[in-house]
């Protein structure tokens, strides 16, 4: 497979938090999905794992007596590898347990203006959804009360001067107000994660928001 090189990456703070294991599940999911497509960030994430490994050296606390013997007695000689991960289909593996291996498995719900979404079941703290934006359409102009990460899985979108294609991730914080527009060539499918409701400016989008819950 030829990989178009990814030009929009994760930021260092997110990579660190992913390595530390302190992100809400929905952000974990989008990070793992991006890492599946981006070796640059994958390597960086490994480096942050290494920091964790280094910190581990610092924190000993005595084990109770006999714990080693207890564990030794429980070991058998086999290894149980986790079942081989299914790779393939048009969705990266981290999404498989949430959706299935293929976009055809997604149960879309129309949310108006031609946009479809599917909310993925994750724990509280942040929300993950797939969005399908029709080719050439724009998402309503919106700002953010928290962080929004958007990862392109299929198609592409343009946001001001930046072009986001498969594997690219856009990170929008409170200071960002934007109108992403799907590329004209095909519908754009994204994984979007937010930790707070978006802020829509128009009256209609705000009514829409009430129904969609974004």
């Amino acid at each position: 497979m030829t990989h178009r090189s990814i030009t929009h990456h994760l930021d260092e703070a997110t990579l660190l938090a992913y390595a530390a294991g302190t992100l809400p599940e929905a952000f974990n999911l989008i990070v793992a999905t991006h890492l599946s497509l981006c070796d640059v960030c994958r390597a960086d994430a490994h480096a942050y794992d290494a920091v964790g490994g280094a910190l581990l050296e610092d924190t000993p606390s005595d084990m109770t007596n006999g714990s080693l013997d207890k564990v030794l007695a429980s070991l058998d000689n086999g290894t149980t590898s986790s079942p081989a991960q299914k790779v393939g289909g048009d969705l990266p593996a981290p999404l498989h347990s949430y959706i299935g291996s293929d976009l055809s498995a997604v149960r879309w719900r129309p949310v108006g203006m031609g946009v479809k979404q599917a909310i993925l079941k994750t724990s509280k703290g942040a929300t993950a959804r797939l969005l399908c934006i029709p080719a050439g359409s724009a998402m309503p102009d919106h700002g953010h009360n928290g962080t929004e990460m958007t990862l392109v899985l299929k198609g592409a979108f343009q946001d001001a001067d930046d072009y986001f294609a498969r594997g690219d991730i856009e990170i929008a914080g409170k200071d960002v107000q934007h109108v992403p527009v799907a590329d004209i060539h095909e519908d754009c499918i994204c994984l979007a994660v937010t930790d707070a409701p978006l802020r829509f400016d128009g009256v209609l989008p705000r009514i829409w928001q009430r129904f969609v819950g974004i």
Binding site: E25, L29, T33, S97
Partner: peptide, 19 residues
């Protein structure tokens, strides 16, 4: 250990990158 901790403290699933 980190994955075990996520499991233990938050009961979250942790997504791992594709092999």
């Amino acid at each position: 250990a980190r994955n075990r901790r996520i499991d233990m403290l938050r009961k979250d699933r942790r997504a791992e990158p594709e092999d």
